[in-house]
Structure formats: C-alpha cells, structure tokens
Computed example of a mutant assay.
Amino acid sequence: MRVVWEGVMPAVTTKFTKEDTLDLDLFLKNIKVQVNAGVSGIILGGTLGEASTLEEGEKEILVRTTVESVGEDVPVIINIAEQSTKGAIRAAENAARFGADGLMMLPPMRYKANEKETVTYFSVVADSTDLPIMIYNNPVDYGIEVTLPMFEKLLRFPNIQAVKESTRDITNITRLRNQFGDRLKILCGVDTLAYESLVAGADGWVAGLVCAFPEETVAIYHLAKTGHYKEALALYRWFMPLLELDISPQLVQNIKLAEVATGLGSEYVRAPRLPLQGAERERVQRIIDTALTNRPALSGLNLTN
C-alpha cells in the first residue's frame, strides 16, 4: 500500500500480558480504534513500542498481524533502529518480507556517527530496499542531527521521502520547506510541539498520546490543517498536560497508564522497564484523571470541512 506521509500516525505501544508475551487481542483493539478515529498510518517498533526489547519473531508477528488487521485502510510502517549497517539492511529486508509498507529510520544506535558515516548509513539502506523511508531526526535523544546539507545528499534516493522532525526547533520546518519544497514531507515528532508545527506547515504528526486519545489527536490535526486555529488551540491546551507525559524517560509507562484509563491498553511493560510506582505514579495518574474529568466534547467542532 502506498504511504502518504501526512495526517496523524500513531507510534503505537506494544501490548504485553502478565506473562510477558504479546497481547494481540488488546493490541488489535487499540489498532482498530486508531483506524476508526481516522489516523493515516500505523508505526510499529518505535520507542513507545519498546522495540529494543522485542525479539525478531515478535516484530514479525506484530507487522503481519497489523497488516492483516488494517487491510487497505492505512499503511503499516516499522521502525529501524540498529547498531550496524548490516543489521539495518537485514531489518529493511525483513520489513518487506513481513508485509510492511514503509520504514521509519533512526541513525546508527550507540555509535555517534559523523556526518559522512550517517549519510552513508542511510544511503546504503535506502539503496537496498524499495520501501519508502521517513528519516527520524532526533538529535536531542539520539545525539545525531540530520542537517539540511545531509538531506540534500540523501534526497537523491527517491524512497527517502519524509522526516520525523524532532529537533525541537520549530523554525527548522520552514528551513526544510524552503530548501526542499514538497519533495520532503515533514511530520512533527514531538507531541508538545504539534500545534505549532502544523501551523508552521508540517504535513503530519507522529504522535504518542494518540495511543490513549486518538479522536482528540486527529481532531487537532484536522482543525489546524483546515484553518480552525482557535478551536485547535483550545483542544491543544486541554491536551498539553497529557502531551508532556510523552517527553519523559518514562514515556512508555506514562502512556500505557493513560491507555488503561481510556480502556485501550494495559500497564504491562517489558523489563528492565517497570510500571510506575509511588509518588510518580500518583502524579501521572492525577494528570490523566484531571484530563478525563475535563475532557472536551468533539461533537460541536468543525471536523467535516
């Protein structure tokens, strides 16, 4: 299925059972709700998906199960976060074999590659696959920035088509657009900068709290892209305390706790992660409870034009 790099693309969590196996029933429940809310794609195996702890067989199950579930409704994209070029090529080959429609790619993990090494890494993988690629540009968390000159070199590969923009610099959206026009699609990768990014011209939003609040997330995107800025901003302001749960080392636990509150997930995480405990759990739960108490109605919003 062709990937259109726009709209809301949830980086979904991986659901586990108490016995630390994949909970496919709960996982598919969440996927169905995402699709029904109007998301534009499903991203598997990101940080929220606890990719670093997933086994290869589990990744295959998640991709094949998701592809079978969504059919032709939305594309399925899997994240590649590998330590070696050889491993990234193998991951891209597996993604195609499993039935994924596209890739989200991080720079090399653990090793802080220089500019030439990073460009070579992305280039070799892009040249090895026909799948479309979204580069994940997150220097804050991963230590490597993909700069405009680097994108200039990378865009000679037609399957490098989008960037998950997570530099935390909103002005970078304008620089990317000025430099590359529509050749490079831009998706916001930071929940707390989503409204600002969409107003600045981002094409989409790779979202985290969407896992628990899909309708509100899609509504903000739709309102912002159709010029209903006041309504989008009001909804975004309500959402902000929740969105801040995504910019935390415990974002997986935070968002899974939110999924429990909305009936779309469980708290089970894979070790070494542990569910939130003590005062921090109480703090996060208060944020979630307050948001649910004040949850706005969407029925009166301009969501049809």
Rank of each mutant, 00 (worst) to 15 (best):
M1H: 12
R2E: 14
V4F: 08
G7L: 10
V8P: 04
P10S: 02
P10K: 02
V12T: 15
F16D: 06
K18W: 01
K18V: 04
D20E: 10
T21H: 15
L22H: 03
L22T: 09
L28T: 01
N30M: 12
V33H: 11
Q34P: 02
G38W: 05
V39N: 07
S40G: 13
I42F: 06
T47L: 14
T47P: 00
A51P: 02
T53L: 03
E55D: 06
E58P: 10
K59W: 11
L62Y: 08
T65M: 03
T66V: 06
V67N: 07
E68L: 08
S69P: 01
V70R: 03
I80K: 06
E82L: 06
Q83I: 10
S84V: 04
S84Q: 00
T85M: 09
K86D: 09
K86S: 11
K86T: 12
G87T: 09
A91M: 04
A92S: 03
A95R: 08
A95T: 01
R97Q: 12
G102D: 05
M105Y: 04
L106P: 01
P107A: 13
P107D: 14
M109S: 13
M109K: 05
M109F: 15
K112Q: 09
N114H: 05
T118V: 13
V124F: 02
V125F: 11
D127V: 02
L131H: 04
P132F: 09
I135A: 09
Y136A: 06
D141P: 00
D141I: 02
Y142P: 00
E145T: 12
L148V: 15
M150A: 09
L154I: 07
R156P: 01
F157T: 02
F157N: 15
P158I: 08
Q161R: 14
A162F: 12
A162M: 07
V163E: 07
K164M: 12
K164T: 11
E165C: 00
T167D: 09
T167H: 04
R168P: 00
T171Q: 08
T171L: 09
I173K: 04
I173H: 07
I173F: 05
T174N: 05
F180L: 09
G181P: 02
D182E: 15
R183N: 05
C188Q: 10
T192F: 14
L193M: 14
Y195A: 01
L198M: 06
V199D: 03
V199Q: 12
V199W: 04
A200G: 00
A200T: 05
G204F: 05
G204I: 01
W205N: 11
G208W: 12
A212S: 14
A212H: 03
P214Y: 10
I220E: 01
Y229G: 00
K230L: 09
L235A: 02
Y236S: 10
Y236V: 00
L242F: 04
D246E: 15
S248N: 15
S248W: 14
P249F: 11
P249I: 09
L251S: 12
V252C: 13
N254P: 14
K256N: 07
E259L: 12
E259Q: 15
V260N: 03
V260M: 12
A261R: 04
T262K: 05
T262G: 06
G265K: 08
P272S: 10
R273H: 11
R273T: 03
R273Q: 11
P275T: 07
E280N: 07
E282F: 04
Q285K: 14
I288V: 09
T290E: 15
A291S: 14
T293R: 15
R295E: 09
S299F: 08
S299R: 13
N302F: 01
N302Q: 11
